[in-house]
């Protein structure tokens, strides 16, 4: 049945080469843990992506209950965690996954550094990776405020002061982030929500696409 559907579509749109291009490729021996177990260090990039997918999915589901409003944000998080079935699990996935993404990304960066994989011709991919790192830190920073508890509020106060210490444009950055020159409140929460849920994920997906297209085009760097 499924085969017939596939054949029907393939006959008309010739989709086989499309997925072959994506899925069919050589995995060199030196990056395959089945050959040398120490090659597991080459898995951290893929693991970062795997956790990122979990973050995107669990985040999409969290917004079914979450409300970015200072009166209701904390209450909605409390409700989804304690009253909704599996709420603790879904929020836990997003909470722990956030830290795990940073850890995996850091290990991936170390692997690329110590195998020298950033060298010519892969410099551009390293630079895109650094941009991904910045976007990920931004996602962590903006997401931390959303539960709107004391820890979130004061961490953001400190974070915004750090942003404000940038020479010349620090004050503008601060107001752009907080939505107000002095208050960290209702407008900050809606802004951080928008940045966390729309702006940064859009940037992240674009950068990840560039990252993956480049690695596919250049192939994995050779053995040490």
């Amino acid at each position: 049945m499924l085969n017939k559907i596939y054949d029907w579509v393939d006959e008309r749109l010739d989709i086989t080469p499309i997925w072959r291009d994506i899925a069919d490729h050589e995995v060199p021996e030196h990056v395959n843990p089945a050959h040398h177990f120490s090659a597991f260090i080459y898995c951290f990039g893929g693991l970062t992506f795997f956790v990122t997918v979990i973050q995107i999915l669990s985040g999409m589901f969290l917004t079914m209950y979450y409300t970015p409003d200072i009166e209701n944000a904390w209450r909605s998080v409390y409700y989804l965690q304690n009253e909704v079935a599996f709420g603790e699990i879904v929020r836990g996935m997003h909470h722990w996954g956030a830290s795990l993404v940073i850890v995996m990304m850091f290990l991936h960066t170390l692997r690329v550094f110590f195998t020298g994989s950033y060298k010519k011709p892969r410099e551009l991919n390293w630079m895109v990776g650094v941009l991904i790192f910045i976007v990920m830190l931004g996602l962590g920073f903006t997401g931390y405020l959303l539960p709107w508890d004391m820890k979130a509020l004061f961490a953001t106060k400190v974070g915004i002061e750090i942003a404000a210490s940038v020479p010349f444009i620090g004050e503008w950055i601060k107001i752009l982030l907080a939505g107000d020159a002095t208050i960290l409140g209702a407008q900050t929460l809606t802004r951080f929500f928008a940045i966390h849920v729309f702006f940064l994920p859009a940037a992240l997906l674009g950068l990840l696409a560039a990252h993956f297209i480049m690695i596919r085009r250049q192939g994995i760097s050779g053995p040490l």
Binding site: I70, G179, D180, I183, G185, A186, Q187
Partner: peptide, 11 residues
């Protein structure tokens, strides 16, 4: 300590 009305956007 002092209290005052603060207008934060719509809040």
């Amino acid at each position: 300590d002092f209290t005052y009305d603060q207008v934060d956007g719509w809040y």
